[in-house]
Amino acid sequence: MNRFAYASPATVTEAAAATGLVAEAMVTFDESAVLKAGGIDLLDLLKLELLTPSVVVNLRAIKGLDAITQDAAGNVAIGAMATLSQVAEHPLVRGSYPALATAIAGAAGPQLRNVATLGGNLLQRPHCWYLRSPAHHCLRKGGGHCFAIHGENQYHAIFDNHACAIVHPSTAATALVALNAEVELHDAEGATRRLPLEDFFVGPDDDIQRENALRPREVLTAIHLRKPASGTRMAHLRQGEKAGFDWPLADVAVVLAIGPDGVCREASVVLGAAAPVPHRARAAEQALQGRHPGEAAAGDAARAALRGATPLSLNAYKLALFETLVRRAILAALA
């Protein structure tokens, strides 16, 4: 780690102003000040000296950023500084958004979940082993090419992988995109904006060096979830190489709005560890909408979910794996 100064502002506005920069997701690796939430991913990047900031701006002294609240309409807001443990164990989350609770409870281990925040989790950098290797100057770090595309790509993307084959590392994001969550962003002038999480993430075709649309002097402060419509069913499934404490090879979140007639009104099917951003499988969603979901519809949706995939030399297995997980997640949501 390089030497850096440390600031602990008391307000979000101050924090936003303290740095011209984005939070733990960096525009580039050599900016001079960074925001720190839980600090887990930040410390990893600092230790690898992929980040060498002159100032680390701590967000933890800001009060109220970890609140989990429900408004009168039943919508839930999760403060960006709520730890993964707090989110996964919160009755509002477990009650209304069990797929999110499952996705988070399966992430990392309890010691990390006690510190890592939901905001930081969404903003963490990819765990591509080339990106995290100081010896590989890859495209995302300003280098000439993506090492994964013709290299060791068994854990990499099967969609949108022609320029850079990272996968988005957050399983919480998989669930939150499926839940049509929105993020709240706060800037140095005190203004806020909200945008769908799905639009917040940035793919390599839009910008090869960033994974989200956070602007300079902006802080992610909250994640908003709409009250689920009645008849909403959901599930999140993951498969890693290890049975616990491992990055998923594949994870899938499914949210289904089932009408009183048993017909699926709305469907969200999102694939994690599949693409540089959480991958919404629109064809799978269409395969479910307007149908009585069951084994047959789930199978159709699962096959549709993989349409258009472009697996690399070592990750074609993910097709079969995702097909299974999508089918099982749909059935699990219905169960």
């Binding site: 850096f4 100064a5 440390y6 600031a7 102003a17 303290a18 100032v55």
Partner: peptide
């Protein structure tokens, strides 16, 4: 706008 107080980068209490 106030800038928050800085500690470091050298040794700090």
């Amino acid at each position: 706008m106030t800038r928050p107080e800085m500690a470091g980068p050298g040794k700090t209490a």
